[in-house]
Amino acid sequence: MAPGGGDVNLFAEAIAYLLDPASWTGAGSIGLRILEHLAFSGAVLLVAAAIGVPAGVLIGHTGRGRGLVIALTSGARAIPTLGLLTIFGLLLGIGIEAPFLALVVLALPPVLAGAYAGVESVDRLVIGGARAIGMTERQILTGVELPLASPVLIGGLRSAALQVISTATLAAYISDTGLGRLIFAGLKTRDYGVMLAGSLLVALLALVVELLFQAAQSAASRRAEPISTPRTTGRARASERNP
């Protein structure tokens, strides 16, 4: 594959493939693959958020179980995603369940860590003040803790989203789904142009998602810290992820 020399041609080939109307029609069209990839990643993220956000908020709120979160996030970084995918694939078969489950497992730690760290970073004095003037626990949660925690919380979702998009690509190795299929199809037929086309699409998709989350995060920062300069957006993410 990709012999030295005519390498620029490979990019030309990839772009030609992407621009070819034939690639965008039929059962295995690029548009369909993109939708598949997005829907799959979105569903994983939703499930991970539905579990991880409430759990993380609870841990940050009560301070109980923080050791677990820290161990989980640093441990999760060491676990190779491909290993997790293949073992789930062997155990659960070639359906979509194996990659789905593996991805939820991978997405949980950053979501949990973001929610936990966000809520924990809220000044105790501010919460005490809110309670002292008679805000109910629910009002404290929704009116004080969540808005103030949101930049870090969204940072965790952002790490998880990138992790999921990345690993969803690998998931095509064990289950026929998403943009990874272009890559593995190209690999099988020794068509580097198609592999490259798939790779460029995934990279583009990841960048778009990254930029969207960045925007959401700085909007949340402006709300949580209206006058200071926006929080350095990379902080929450430095802690977790393994593309």
Binding site: V126, A130, A132, I133, G134, V144
Partner: peptide, 20 residues
Amino acid sequence: PVKLRRSIGYVLQAGGLLPH
């Protein structure tokens, strides 16, 4: 407790104001 707290003024060190 919530009604009670709303009927009593409470001042904390450094205000305990909501930063946002």
